[in-house]
Write a protein that binds this DNA or RNA. Structure first.
Lengths: 255, 255
DNA sequence: CGCGCCCTTGACGAACGTCAAGACTCGTGG
DNA sequence: CCACGAGTCTTGACGTTCGTCAAGGGCGCG
């Protein structure tokens, strides 16, 4: 994985972490929505050029290094975000430290759909992330003036709800092998929609992250991946996997 | 459980199934939103009296007997529903018949938040159910004219999303005992909001339903409930349970 | 009365978790 | 430049929880 904005997957940020200058991510340092690389796939797609300009005025670019936290569950939600590159994990913790990752955010994904007072989960960057930050109150006022934007947010929310329900089926009723297979297929589908390659799936998250997403332990995830690789269904590559036998994988992850 | 509309829980329909007349459910046979028993807790709460009248004109009452199906996953969604009494289960099936119940619907709950073309899950009545049926296209047009109603639908959708995320934690990261305890507490909270009793929790669904909601088998659910009863944390009563030791139950279901 | 459905309980087994050891990568500092 | 250490991944041995299979009881309804 080269981890630059110019990769096929159009996924990752330039990895100039630590450099003094602002990181480049598809366009220059100004946050001009009109030239945003995700404007056509995110909620912003509901806006016309004039509205995009208005949105530009109230947005600011926010960059996180790997492992940095965007916000914690319970924090006052003073902002909403639109991810432009990189991947984040959204998770909830139980008092004893057990963790459930409720989702991974990819470019184009929006955080803060609920427009509510506080965040219901924590979010942190898995790799270098760039996001468009909007003041929540300002954005809420903007939404109140634009019913078509609210409509779009509602569509996004109900889509998230559908995804969540599918994940409940996975967590409640599928075996370890089915979980991993279904996850790989769903990630593949998301990346395809982003215009990325469909055979090599980058997995910037750790095995522990996968386990906490799939309701397994990291050892079980590792074993299942090893078995799939031994059976020539996938090939393990650095920071990702490559699908060798899609039809067999689909049989395992059948939904 | 007496199963009449006039119970404390304000939950169930009159059980005059099979009778020739329309079932009574809080008000007479006319479907007047203004006198609806759930109008203040459902999405309709966003509407003023005039709008409620308009809604009345486009709604019709729909009654289901226990085990009847409201719709199946994949059906064209030509209607949305507002539950006025009784309980339904929403579920998804895997090709081999495994089932995940993604939620139980109670009075005041709305089905069809997504306003989308097809239903993403199936729904059927656990007990006698009464619901307010609205033609989807008509309702969608109505929503387009009322941004505050859309806003309310969006709030409902994001609330559902939060509930779904909490359930993911339960399915992915909790033990059988914790699952049952947390479920009982969440059901208790929902009933409390509906003005019902907070110590006796009606459970009109079967153990299999509970199992398919909690990601367990019916035997495990039964064993856990028996153990909680043996430990004097709950008391099993016909079609429900009574909480004897709330604090211990809360310790088990700690979130 | 008898049948079907639901629930409970027990005995056993399997899938997955736990614990532990070791390899590998990568960044950091001597 | 290499040594070191932290973090990650893999793999094995073993344990526990929960699932499977089976039997029987209670209850409602025809």
């Amino acid at each position: 994985m080269t981890n630059t904005c110019e990769t096929d997957a159009a996924l990752s940020c330039t990895a100039d972490a630590g450099g003094p200058g602002p990181s480049r991510c598809g366009h220059a340092t100004t946050n001009v929505c009109a030239s945003c690389r995700v404007k056509d796939i995110s909620v912003c797609a509901a806006l016309d050029p004039g509205e995009l300009t208005a949105l530009s005025a109230m947005s600011e670019k926010s960059v996180l290094a790997a492992k940095e936290t965007l916000f914690l569950q319970g924090d006052v939600a003073d902002a909403v975000y639109n991810v432009t590159c990189g991947m984040l994990r959204l998770y909830k913790l139980l008092p004893d430290g057990r963790r459930q990752i409720v989702g991974f955010l990819l470019p184009g994904d929006f955080v803060g759909l609920s427009l509510s007072e506080r965040f219901g989960f924590s979010a942190d960057a898995i790799e270098t992330v760039s996001a468009c930050r909007l003041d929540r109150a300002t954005f809420a006022r903007f939404v109140d003036l634009k019913p078509h934007l609210l409509r779009r947010l509602h569509e996004a929310a109900t889509h998230e709800l559908t995804v969540a329900q599918d994940h409940m089926v996975l967590l409640g009723r599928r075996s370890a092998e089915e979980k991993v297979a279904a996850f790989l297929l769903s990630m593949r589908e998301r990346l395809r929609r982003l215009g990325g390659s469909s055979v090599t799936i980058p997995l910037p998250m750790t095995r522990q992250d996968l386990a906490d997403h799939l309701g397994l332990t990291l050892e079980t995830v590792s074993r299942v991946i090893s078995r799939l690789a031994r059976d020539r269904i996938i090939l393990v590559v650095p920071d990702g996997i490559r699908i060798l036998d899609l039809s067999r994988l689909e049989r395992l992850g059948a939904s």
